[in-house]
Design a protein around this nucleic acid. Structure first.
Length: 954
RNA sequence: GGCCGAGUGGCGGAAUGGCAGACGCUGGGGAUUUAAAAUCCCCUGUCCUUAACGGACGUGCGGGUUCGAGUCCCGCCUCGGCUACCA
């Protein structure tokens, strides 16, 4: 074997690693030989959804990055936990079942087998004995167990932690009402609770869709109509953890941008709740007196409409109020004259999807209820409207509108001719033009100084906010409140292919659920999905498919009572909320993870995955983890210490030119897109054809790409997301077949920084393959069918220069791996290979060290070269090479000499030369002397070891 | 609209405030070869200039700080991602 042949050596080494269980992680880090203090690295990839399409080049990007890190850490003596598994529940398998009748489990297992084969082919150092799939009954048994923990928990706001529901104090008045009231009270406080919530039902697809699967009122896939209808749903009380989820971000090694994303999503805002009086006008003063003698009530009561505002300082400017169309007070507050319009408006609003309602392009809408409220601070009588720009699900579902200082209210008030009253004046520091503000041309939303606010005039916004909140609180009219954008988590899906809820719903004599829900005992788990459920493509109701489960599964009798199983299933997120724990102890039959093992390996030291999971998955998993933490089931409050998002890999750069019907080129600058999304000529709207161009036909002029032949014709050059429809998808299997897995791994890491978005370039794969070929030739003899080392590889000590280059390479590669700067690490190794390929004597020890450096990146070729260099076992646990600073030091260095900051010459000086020596050398340089002749040196800057700069005059 | 990120050769990209463009791709030239593949060597930011040399300009735009700015500060522009009436 004289030529580098990846297909042979890659298969060989994969087999070796598998047979020797080279990458098996020990039960505990300290179980590993020579690791008494239990140094460990838990390195985790976001596990994939095993789609029918198979692996995509985006997957190996993150997986290679973590694999390199793992291999590096092993060689540094760490016990490494590096598992892989499958996030295998999901709608595609269920849709496939509807079309073909094939059970989702069969489809899923087939897809997993394909993914597993593809990942194996890339030589990742996973401990495959720890593989889990969220669809395994033995796995979701514990997902169900954790759900029971949530179900049996309430959140104690004082202790700021979850506690068992048995410890929830029951108020006396509730207890007095009897067992049923107590039961309802408990259910209202559980971390898992039920509500009626609208779902997106798509009759055509026969399924309920998530909000993100509905675009513009139709399904994302297929474009079928979607209707919203209320359905009983399970919710998880993630909002109880909002503050902790936000605060605990501080200690995590995550990028600021992901932290910011999570903070925005949680959306904490501090403000005040304020009650506006809506009772009979003559009783206003009585009401105020009553309120002043009591504390601010938990609920507003029938005589008041509660609002949330972050700007209580603008209370004097409230000129109307708005309720969400779904607000419970709407009916009561609608007068007889307004009844018809209000009802019609509510009906229209109910048809609109969340997306339609938030379509900002659209004008605001709303109707007057006919009623008025009284401003608690000045008794002003203001009209109450309903409008869908106010959301029922945020704050109290109603607002006080201050059009002078809120852009949305301003728009609405302008449209409906409602009064606009200025109560905040801009200061000198304000960005807004005071002229525009004075002319009421725009809302002034910044901080400023109070005006038209009675006794508070002249106060700065922040001071006024604090003061008025305090006054309102004393008067029983309001209180300081914190609100979150984060909503509770809708945790049920009307799908078959998900974890069944371990819950039973009690039935009354007529066989209807009576509202009592009891959990299964842990000993009754797992609750598997039933056999023999027909996959019906023509489902006519949004009821869950499990409603059609066989009766022996669906109905249960217990203590003489009849129960029906919960037929909703859990969302796909559920399984991914805790998989990192199961990997640690995947076969445990008594617990989801042994606490000793959990404690030893936690937390995940490095977690790598796509940015699309920066919010939901990570927030949900952190939430579950904190619940487990509150119950002492995990040892740390946060699961993922360091997080890195790999950037997306785009398709190859594509050039597009435009031609008119007669074949004449049209510059892209003269092409427009018409309403149908078709390209047309700007001047006359004539149709235009897009033509794909080869790179050689394209040139560049200034900022623009142009036709090489006709530089006046501008063409478009762009890299797009890979997609089947665009036809620019790269299949990793093909790349492996053509170049080898090591080349694919190396290329993906060489493309650029891990976190950057980068376009694919097939020639680049060829480039790294050339590098591996060169490394091979550097060490292995090129003689036909020879297995020998290259004659240049000899058992000698490296000379000084060779040694310096070796140590520089060790240092650079080591530091780059620590920073995950793999692209530059590879560049340094290329320089090494370029240098040593030209050396006629290549010390064997140097070659061996280099092979170790290369091994995390290209493990197959490295193992092969390692064995050719004389080893008889894997290099996976060889000590990582160390560098010596002394070896790197050069005796002389070249220093740039600048005059007025411009490079004019270079001088050679001893590496440790002091400032004076360097200055003298610079002044002695012929060219510098010439340039300085006749000039006055105003200043000399000498940075020893770096540079010299003379500032001159004249 | 808000938040985040990015603008450096033909392309991907490199550069603790100190020699801009490492490394790779592409393109060009040469060596080797009967020829090709493979391999090896040289050149490859723009402009001016030379026999050789040499010089000017150059990191999206405009300012600033500094002896010195791709890097720091202020103001813009463009592109990408996320988010979207959250009171």
């Amino acid at each position: 074997m004289s030529r580098y042949n990846p297909s042979v050596i890659e298969a060989k080494w994969r087999k070796y690693w598998e047979e020797h269980k080279t990458f098996a992680a020990p039960r505990l880090p300290s179980d590993m030989p020579n690791n008494p203090e239990g140094k460990k690295a838990y390195v985790l990839d976001m596990f994939p959804y095993p789609s029918a399409q198979g692996l995509h080049v985006g997957h190996p990007e993150g997986y290679t990055a973590t694999d390199i890190f793992c291999r590096f850490m092993r060689m540094n003596g760490y016990a490494v936990m590096h598992p892989m598994g499958w996030d295998a529940f999901g709608l595609p398998a269920e849709q496939h079942a509807k079309k073909t009748g094939i059970h989702p489990r069969i489809t899923t297992e087939k897809n997993i087998a394909n993914f597993r084969r593809q990942l194996h082919a890339l030589g990742f150092s996973y401990d495959w004995d720890r593989e889990v799939a969220t669809t395994d009954v033995d796995y979701f048994r514990w997902t169900q167990r954790i759900f029971l923990i949530l179900f049996n928990a309430w959140y104690d706001k004082d202790q700021k932690k979850a506690r068992h529901i048995d410890e929830l104090p029951i108020p006396d008045d509730v207890r007095a009402e009897g067992d049923d009231a107590v039961r309802r009270y408990l259910d209202d406080h559980r971390l898992a609770y039920q509500i009626e919530a609208p779902v997106n039902w798509c009759p055509e697809l026969g399924t309920v869709l998530a909000n993100e699967e509905v675009v513009g009122g139709v399904s994302e896939r297929g474009g079928f109509p979607v209707v919203r209808m209320p359905l009983r749903q399970w919710m998880l009380r993630i909002t109880a953890y909002a503050d902790r989820l936000e605060e605990d971000l501080a200690d995590l090694d995550w990028s600021d941008s992901v932290k910011a994303l999570q903070r925005n999503w949680i959306g904490r805002s501090v403000g005040a709740e304020v009650d506006f009086y809506i009772g009979p006008q003559e009783k206003f003063e009585d009401w105020k007196t009553a309120r002043a003698n009591a504390t601010f009530p938990r609920k507003s009561g029938d005589n008041a409409l509660r609002v949330f505002t972050t700007r209580p300082d603008t209370l004097y400017g409230a000129s109307y109020m708005v309720m969400a169309p779904e607000h419970p007070y709407v009916e009561r507050l609608t007068t007889a004259e307004q009844k018809n319009v209000v009802e019609e408006y509510r009906r229209q609003a109910s048809f609109k999807s969340d997306l339609d309602r938030t379509d900002l392009a659209k004008e605001k809408t709303g109707v007057f209820t006919g009623s008025y409220a009284m401003n608690p601070v000045n008794g002003a009588k203001i009209p109450i409207w309903i409008a869908d720009y106010v959301l029922a699900s945020y704050g109290s579902g109603a607002i006080m509108a201050v059009p002078a200082h809120d852009t949305r209210d301003f728009e609405f008030a302008t449209l409906f001719n409602l009064p606009i009253k200025q109560v905040v004046a801009p200061t000198k520091e304000s960005n807004a033009s005071s002229e525009e503000v004075a002319l009421m041309k725009t809302a002034f939303t910044e901080k400023g100084v109070a005006v038209n606010s009675g006794e508070f005039d002249g106060m700065a916004t922040e001071d006024f906010k604090a003061l008025i909140t305090e006054r309102l609180e004393k008067a029983g009219l309001g209180r300081k409140t914190v609100n979150y954008k984060l909503r509770d988590w809708l945790f049920s899906r009307q799908h078959f292919w998900g974890e069944p809820f371990p819950l039973l719903r009690e039935l009354d004599e007529e066989g209807k659920p009576n509202g009592v829900v009891i959990p299964l005992e842990p000993s009754e788990l797992p609750l598997d999905l039933p056999q023999g459920v027909a996959f019906d493509a023509t489902k006519h109701s949004p009821e869950p498919p499990l409603e059609n489960a066989p009766e022996e599964w669906l109905y249960v009798e217990r203590n003489g009572k009849k129960y029906k199983r919960e037929t909703n299933t859990m969302p796909q997120w559920a399984g991914s909320c805790w998989y990192y724990l199961r990997y640690l102890d995947p076969k445990n039959q008594d617990n989801f993870v042994d606490p000793e093992i959990e404690k030893a390996w936690s937390p995940v030291d490095l977690y790598v995955g796509g940015a699309e999971h920066a919010v939901l998955h990570l927030l949900y998993a952190r939430f579950w983890h904190k619940v487990l933490y509150d119950f002492g089931l995990v040892s740390r409050p946060e699961p993922f210490q360091r997080l890195v998002n790999q950037g997306m890999i785009l398709g190859e750069m594509e050039f597009t030119g435009f031609q008119s019907e007669d074949g004449a080129w049209i510059s892209a600058a003269d092409v427009d897109v018409d309403k149908q999304g078709k390209a047309v000529r700007k001047s006359d709207g004539a149709p235009v054809n897009s033509v794909k161009l080869a790179q050689k036909d394209v040139g560049k002029s200034g900022e623009n790409y142009t036709l090489a032949e006709e530089p006046t014709i501008i063409v478009l050059g762009k890299s797009e997301k890979m997609s089947k429809s665009r036809g620019n998808v790269i299949n990793p299997d093909d790349v492996v077949a053509q170049y080898g897995a090591d080349s694919l791994r190396l290329y993906e890491m060489f493309m650029g920084p891990l976190e950057a978005v980068k376009p694919w370039n097939q020639d680049g794969v060829n480039g790294v393959r050339n590098f591996l070929d060169r490394v091979w030739r550097m060490i292995i003899s090129q003689e036909f069918e020879s297995d020998a080392l290259n004659d240049a590889v000899q058992d000698v000590e490296p000379n000084e220069e060779q040694n310096r280059i070796l140590h520089k390479t060790i240092k650079a590669v080591t530091e780059d791996i620590r920073n995950l700067s793999y692209n530059t690490a590879i560049a340094r190794m290329m320089e090494f290979a370029n240098f040593f390929s030209r050396e006629s004597i290549r010390p064997k020890s140097t070659m061996k060290t280099f092979v170790l450096l290369l091994s995390p990146f290209a493990p197959h070729i490295a193992e092969e070269l390692w064995s050719m260099l004389g080893a008889n076992q894997t290099l996976a646990y060889e000590p990582w090479p160390k560098w010596s600073e002394d070896a790197i030091k050069e005796s002389t260095i070249t220093i740039p000499v600048q005059i007025n900051g411009k490079l004019r010459a270079r001088v050679e000086v001893p590496a440790d030369a002091d400032a004076q020596t360097i200055e003298d050398a610079a002044l002695a340089e012929k060219k510098i002397a010439e340039l300085l002749d006749g000039k006055t040196i105003v200043k000399k800057i000498v940075a020893p070891g770096k540079m010299v700069n003379f500032v001159v005059k004249g």
